[in-house]
Amino acid sequence: MNPQSRLRRRLARIEETAFLFLMRLALISVVMILGWILATLLIKGMPVLSWELISQPPQGGYYLGGKGGILNAILGSLYLAAGGTLLALIAALPVVFYLTTYLHQKTRRAALIRLALDVLWGIPSIVYGVFGFLIMLSLGLRASLLAGIITLAFLELPILIRGMDEFIRTTPEELVQSSLAVGATPLDTTLKVISRQTLPGLITAVLLAFGRGIGDAASVLFTAGYTDHLPTSLFEPAASLPLAVFFQLGTPFPAVQQRAYASALVLTIIILVISFISRWLISRFNKYLVR
């Protein structure tokens, strides 16, 4: 081997080592940023988190540092996200069944529907907020739990359909074919075979959409409003956790800002729990699937 090619080989090795270092660095920093965010939440939020905070609505003078808690926001968020997810699910299921039952994967129509869904998924939540606001005006509603639920349903719809669609696509083709071969109609196959096979996946998609809905602030800012009362009616405004974080952080009082940290911690815990449940569901039910 002549010295020149040896040098070249050594340079190549140095280059690889350098890039490998950069790649490891990038990946480690991604993991560390997650750790940093969670640590910040825990350190700032944990000392303020108390039973009073999560079990009471705001009392008089709450935003000046008075007594009370964020139960209004916790309940409001749960109602908003649950209602939005339910509404989105009702609209989503027929579309999912249509995509999986009647359109073979490669048809143009299926591709077009999936493209439209991907495009809808990418529309910013602030635009959904504006859209929901306009719908709300045209229906003669004011900022209310119902208007928030409708807006979130639009926001969650593409997430839900595409999520379920992706899971259903993992169904083995043989399973579908053998169901059709014994005389089942496509509808029977979808309702009795595919949906049973992919049920954990479908539930996971629902949970993911719920998590997206509960964390979204920009869409409910216009439509659900904010109130210190617990939500009791569909036609009254409803508070939500993301907005509780946002508004409390914006006050000049440190005591109130600290409650924003605790609210953020509560919101993150809810989302982490949802994420863990869906992870567990998938691993738990995976062993019962036909492969």
Binding site: L41, P242, V245, A260, T268, I271
Partner: peptide, 9 residues
């Protein structure tokens, strides 16, 4: 999955 308000905070 972390909400954008949390990133903002």
């Amino acid at each position: 999955g972390i909400p954008s308000v949390i990133y903002g905070m």
